[in-house]
Amino acid sequence: MGETPAIETQDLSKTYVLGLVRRRAQPALCGVTLRVQRGEVFGLLGSNGAGKTTFVKLLLGMVRPTSGQARLLGWPVPSQEARRRLGYLPENLRVPAHLTGLTALTFYGQLSHLSAREARRRAWPLLEQLGLAARANDSVRTYSKGMLQRLGLAQAVLHEPEVVFLDEPTDGMDPVARAQVRTFLKELQRRGTTIFLNSHLLQEVEMLCDRVAILDRGRLRQVSSLVEITTALPRSSADESGTRAGPDAAQDAERELELILQGSQAAIEQALADRPCEMNFHDGVTRVHLGVSDQAAVDALVDRLRQAGVSLLCLMPRRRSLEQAYLQIVRESAAP
């Protein structure tokens, strides 16, 4: 618990200055405060131009922040110490055409301060895991997009980094390859590697990530666990990891429940008269969707139903897809 977070930012902002003569400011990131714990699989979501790439570049030291601070594994950004412990798979990776799969891995491993021998020793198991062993000695010029992505993933983890930044890791891959990559990433996570995932494929994020952050127009709208974000009813922006902003945040957070009930329709309606809900009666079974604020409310509800003689066949949180949650959040943040 006392461990430093893998990634920590405090009011991180970046404004680009464009133009040579008439210079104009282009804000890209505004006051992002974020913490990613070690061992997490963290997803960063946002539309095009939301600031995701800028955020990652700030963490990698490719651009300088206008204000705020960022730390990687406790080291301030940019820091060579931090960069020794991170791996990165950029979007649209370009590997020099004169390299083969094996020599490319060796080369990138040496850039990460591995010896050539050590890099080669580690490269083979990785290539096998990612299905590239048979093509290891072929020129990368002959690789497909998916193969290049897998090669890129291999170079990102070759030196056993503590944090891995992946930018669209499954871009261009077929479903089988994607499944392979997901398994690979889960294995990474199991070993304790922190994974920072930047992807447009929300299904992918949903399958992999523990927590996600949503960026919209340079501002952090929400940071929650996947369960929370898909089960919670939509609320306004959050700026702290795992919690919501504002004094009424706890009261505002509601979960949606799905109940399957058996009993008289009138009794059910009467028991649930105090709260808005959706009811669907069919074949003597009633499906109800309603929102509750906390566990006490759930208990009270169950008591009322039982008192009304209604049987509770099933009670479970109603989950939306991440895409639905994301779209809802973005819509709400755009509303005046």
Binding site: M62, Y88, P90, R94, L111
Partner: peptide, 16 residues
Amino acid sequence: QMFDPGSIALLLSKPL
């Protein structure tokens, strides 16, 4: 060629 986006980003992420 070193400054291709898919190349420079990777190089700059290394401890160099």
